[in-house]
Amino acid sequence: MKPIWSAKKALIWTLLAIGAIIMMTPIIFMFSASFKYNDQLYDLALISSEPTLSNYVYLSQNTQFLTWMVNSFIVAIIVTLSVLFFDALIGYTLCKFRFKGRTVIFVAILSTLMIPTEMLVIPWYIVAKDLGILDSYLGLIFPGLMSGFGVFLMKQFFQGVPDEYLDAARIDGLNEFQIFIEVALPLVTPALSALAIFTFLGNWTAFLWPLIVTSSADLYTIPVGLSSFSGEFQSEWQMIMTGAAVASLPTIMIFLLLQRYIIRGVILGGLKG
């Protein structure tokens, strides 16, 4: 019998643990600083001798962080729902229907994956300006409502759904849209959750487009708000860290709650996408 803990294994484990601590250091220090007063910052102690919530109180009373959070949630949720519905519908149609032009449409949608967002932001900005939707929710969300990545992912997954499921529902008298909603969608929930994770995360952390399209603080999303707030509060690092903590908390919380699904989703999305 080999011992369960050989010296080599113990060494590997220790090194991995040190690595894990290093990885978590920025996040830990961020939260730690958010509970400190300014003059305790250069103290390396993680938990201050007199922890305080005053930074959080200040942020909620004197800044628009709450508004920015709400904006970010609204944008990320609308975009995610739209992407889930439309990308699944497009992927399903391209996978399960035979009609002229199917391949052309699929290749066309796939080709949009090669266009970097940065190339599109200038035309988007001009169109948004012409339509008068700069600095509005509509302006924030319109570029993300459907994605080529999601279409590709969903099409891959629908390939694994046997046509018999759909035929059985046809015999039961459902129309094609009902079949999509009631039969096809529930069969690909892992793919939907993977797509939801990527889309929500991408939109929650998105910076470039919200920075360009918004100009009034009422419409900032949390990254834009945090960036502008931090620019003004330079030197008030405990405030900046509190803002950063507020911005990071939702995704970290969601991860802690749904860890297994998220990791599985990231693998599915990463490998199939």
Binding site: I27, T205, F207, S230, M241, G243, A244, A247, S248
Partner: peptide, 10 residues
């Protein structure tokens, strides 16, 4: 899973 902007400031 963190926001790049937030971590940039950290």
């Amino acid at each position: 899973l963190t926001t790049a902007v937030a971590m940039a400031w950290v």
